[in-house]
Design a protein around this nucleic acid. Structure first.
Length: 384
DNA sequence: GGTCACCCTCTTAATTTGGC
DNA sequence: GCCAAATTAAGAGGGTGACC
């Protein structure tokens, strides 16, 4: 790690008749008092002429930077930002912003006065605990990953002598997960939503509930994605946080690009909706004829009011996707691979069970299911 | 109604770990 | 050495509040 210094020089401040030194260190300009008083300008000029070659050394002394020691040349804060910026290529814009925010808000203040030699495994462990007291499991883990990556890179760059992240205390550390907090709409609620909603909300709910689309996928639907004669549509893009991204350009762990065949009643609904369409291009548009850019708009001004009207408690828009998958996985007749194909999970993914096998049946439905199980069981007994 | 910024949480594929 | 579970790393959804 090189120390970059330039333009070191002395100058006099006439108001206090004190000699100051200025210069640039690692791209940052500094002006510091040498605390040397002079009685006249002429005297100051003579002193400066004699000592000017030492200006940068003087400045480094005042700043407390040892130019012979690599370890003090880059601060933890500067190095952290450099690391996050240098590795930004593998993240999307929003993730990168989030990482920078976590570093700025949670990590930098805690290690504010640290030099590299102050880091050890116990301090780091203590930091993990400190974070967990304020944040969820998820955010704590994210914060931990960020600081670990920075410290490991600092070790690779020989800024710190020991690889703290690989030490026992750190390797053994893990957070206790929060209880999952995910809900789905119950079958009776789903039925109500499909039957009692009106206008474009009916189409929105139909597509969300019967095909498990994500909010961003719904907002990005265009009429050209649908082939109503052949009965299918394609998910060609996603809209998140104000940005429209075509599926082919998405380098993501969410599989957007896929083709979905529709039930006959959905085709019928879409055909009649097309006659009253608000835009020739987009399926769902705000009042100015443009697609919704933020799911929050739909949630607050359209989705929540619709639910209130039909008497269904709000459980987020995404809960419609959960409901779809949960209902479908209740049926043994439907191959899980088929469900995964429709919702865009990877084939064989355990996610389908882990996050979506939620309890969405009422007692009568459960009793019915048990009855079906009983039939199969007894049929097998009869063969034996 | 609508966007946007900020912050936090949930979802998901890929990779690593560890138990047998 | 295999396979399932745990971890990692990232994308996306959601709540709040300011502003237009």
């Amino acid at each position: 790690m090189n120390l970059e210094c330039s333009n070191g020089s002395f100058y006099i401040r006439k108001d206090t008749m004190t000699i100051f030194v200025q210069g640039t260190v690692n791209g940052k300009k500094y002006k510091r008092s040498t605390k040397k008083k002079v009685s006249s300008e002429a005297m100051a000029k003579a002193w400066i002429k004699k000592n000017n070659h030492k200006a940068m050394d003087t400045l480094l002394d005042i700043l407390g930077i040892d130019k012979d020691s690599d370890s003090k040349t880059v601060s933890f804060e500067d190095f952290g930002y450099r690391y996050l910026n240098a590795t930004r290529g593998k993240r999307n814009k929003h993730t990168q912003e989030d990482y920078l925010r976590i570093f700025r808000i949670s990590i930098v203040p805690y290690f504010n006065n640290f030099s590299w030699s102050d880091f050890d495994s116990l301090t780091l462990s203590e930091f993990y605990n400190h974070i967990r007291e304020q944040y969820s499991y998820d955010r704590s883990k994210r914060t931990k990953n960020i600081i670990n990556n920075i410290l490991e890179t600092a070790y690779d760059e020989e800024l710190i002598k020991r690889n703290i992240v690989r030490m026992k205390t750190i390797r053994d550390h893990s957070y206790e997960p929060d209880a999952p907090n995910t809900e789905a709409y119950e079958v009776s609620e789903v039925k109500k939503m499909l039957e009692e909603s009106e206008g474009w909300m009916k189409v929105f709910m139909e597509l969300a509930l019967k095909y498990g689309l994500r909010v961003g996928e719904l907002m990005g639907l265009k009429w050209s994605d649908f082939d109503l004669e052949r009965g299918f549509f394609k998910i060609n893009r996603n809209i998140t946080k104000g940005e429209i991204v075509e599926s082919v350009n998405i380098k993501t762990n969410k599989n957007h690009l896929r083709e979905i065949f529709m039930f006959p009643e959905t085709i019928h609904l879409l055909k009649s909706f097309k006659n009253f369409r608000m835009s020739d291009e987009w399926i769902f548009v705000s009042k100015d004829g443009k697609p919704f850019l933020n799911s929050k708009t739909i949630t607050d001004y359209h989705f929540k009011p619709t639910l209130e009207k039909i008497g269904v408690p709000y459980r987020t828009v995404h809960a419609m996707r959960r409901s779809y998958i949960s209902i479908m996985t209740q049926s043994e007749q439907i191959d899980k691979k088929e469900i995964q194909k429709v919702v865009g999970h990877a084939e064989g993914s355990r996610i389908t069970d882990k996050h979506y096998n939620l309890d969405c049946l009422n007692d009568a439905q459960k009793q019915n299911k048990a009855k079906e199980h009983g039939k199969v069981f007894n049929a097998l007994l009869a063969i034996a």
